[in-house]
Design a binder for these strands. Structure first.
Lengths: 146, 146
DNA sequence: TTTTTTTAAGACTAAATTATCCGATATAAA
DNA sequence: TTTATATCGGATAATTTAGTCTTAAAAAAA
């Protein structure tokens, strides 16, 4: 089983995107968000709290409380979310875990993987949540009932 | 924490490469292999047994027994090892786990990730163990004592 | 034939990740 | 002021992945 990003990271991105897709200025509760996205309430609650501590989201307690974006959607990139949750150690580590794999003295796929890795980094850094939302709006939640 | 391949898969590739780098026709014991590569004996034993069942390696019990390549080094690709251990589900799944992410109706990074994923697949499919060994020989085990 | 060496197989343990539960705190509204 | 609704924080449980241990079986050599 190969993965790229942790499940936490997947949920984080889905959640931030969900907040960006909500047109109104009201805060969104964990309950609504996790129900609509069909992801686990308590687990995601922790992730949202984490993103709030790191400034990507804002939160408010009490009735009519919830979460919202901590900055303009166009100022939040995928990279920022990945950095906040998973970190970007994949940018430094050998893809097959070879020891002694450095830029001078390296494994046989080092350069090839280096290029791919750079592409991934660009994808994350260049895609902001506003674009994500715009491109997702039409396709994502059309089967959602109220 | 982001990863691409499981630790099992990393060890598998390192082990197969070690076998390919051994010039002689003798079989290599788990003990030697794991000691030289500094990876866990029992865990790797299981992986080698798995690769043997799948035909990538051959094994022989008893004194002077051990493991060897199950086919010519040039006929073993990285992809075959990854397929045997991790599978290639990353070729099909949405990189951020979005549900409803299909070719027709997809998330905002679907196409971009699709290209990257293809590059990864090419890297794995086009690199065989003979090449790996040739490119690794000079740089990998130069600090090995015995 | 006995001993030694090695893989084979399965049970077991440890650690990391994912997920849940509960009590406290803040806050808006009744 | 009381009540209901949220997040916050810490403990706990479940699952998956990583790693260990022990016994059996095969095979070569003594």
């Amino acid at each position: 089983m190969s993965i790229i990003f942790s499940r936490q990271c997947e949920y984080a991105i889905q959640a931030v995107l969900y907040l960006a897709l909500k047109p109104d200025k009201n805060m969104i509760s964990i309950r609504e968000l996790t129900k609509q996205l069909d992801i686990p309430y308590h687990f995601v609650a922790k992730i949202l709290q984490d993103l709030t501590r790191k400034g990507l989201l804002v939160s408010h307690k009490g009735p009519a409380g919830g979460f919202g974006l901590g900055m303009k959607a166009k100022d939040i990139t995928l990279l920022q979310i990945v950095e906040a949750i998973d970190g970007v150690s994949f940018m430094n580590n050998c893809v097959f875990g070879f020891p002694n794999c450095t830029d001078e003295d390296h494994c046989a796929v080092h350069d090839q993987w280096g290029k791919i890795r750079t592409k991934i980094h660009e994808m994350l850094a260049n895609k902001n949540i506003l674009e994500m939302a715009a491109e997702t709006k039409k396709v994502q939640y059309h089967s959602g009932k109220q």
